[in-house]
């Protein structure tokens, strides 16, 4: 694991997956590729964990899945956001942005005990 790579905060993986599906239905492989590419490989996520997240969110009703044809004509399971999933994405994005903002402000401030 390279030092540049970050460990994911809990719940963040869900947010990333929801975000990946915002563009439309996708199978697990393309979700993984998209996160990897978009984050410039900042996160080291096990693909297995990503699938666990997909199925967990499906159970919660944030995603649905359906079998379909992949881009190279193979059977693949496609995930799509449900209305609940979309709401969850919006809420989590807002929380995350506020959180990141607050942390950034603290880090940018002068002084402090550390």
């Amino acid at each position: 694991m390279s030092p540049r790579q970050l460990n994911l905060l809990q719940g963040t993986l869900d947010l990333l997956v929801l975000k990946a599906l915002q563009r439309g239905p996708a199978h697990g492989y393309s979700v993984a590729s998209w996160i990897r590419a978009t984050s410039d490989k900042a996160f080291e996520i096990e693909d297995g964990a990503l699938y666990t997240a997909l199925h967990r969110m499906q159970k919660r009703g944030w995603l649905t899945s359906e079998w379909g044809q992949s881009e190279n004509n193979r059977r693949a399971r496609f995930y799509a956001l449900t209305a609940d999933g979309r709401r969850q994405l919006d809420a989590d994005s807002a929380t995350w942005a506020a959180y990141a903002d607050a942390v950034a402000k603290i880090l940018a401030s002068e002084g402090g005990s550390g």
Binding site: E46, G48, Y51, T52, K59
Partner: peptide, 20 residues
């Protein structure tokens, strides 16, 4: 390597799907 332990993940996912 990127996937991680197939056995462990498969187990976890199965539990989720059966519950669902």
């Amino acid at each position: 390597r990127r996937f991680g332990s197939v056995r462990a993940h498969r187990q976890a996912i199965l539990r989720l799907d059966v519950g669902r």
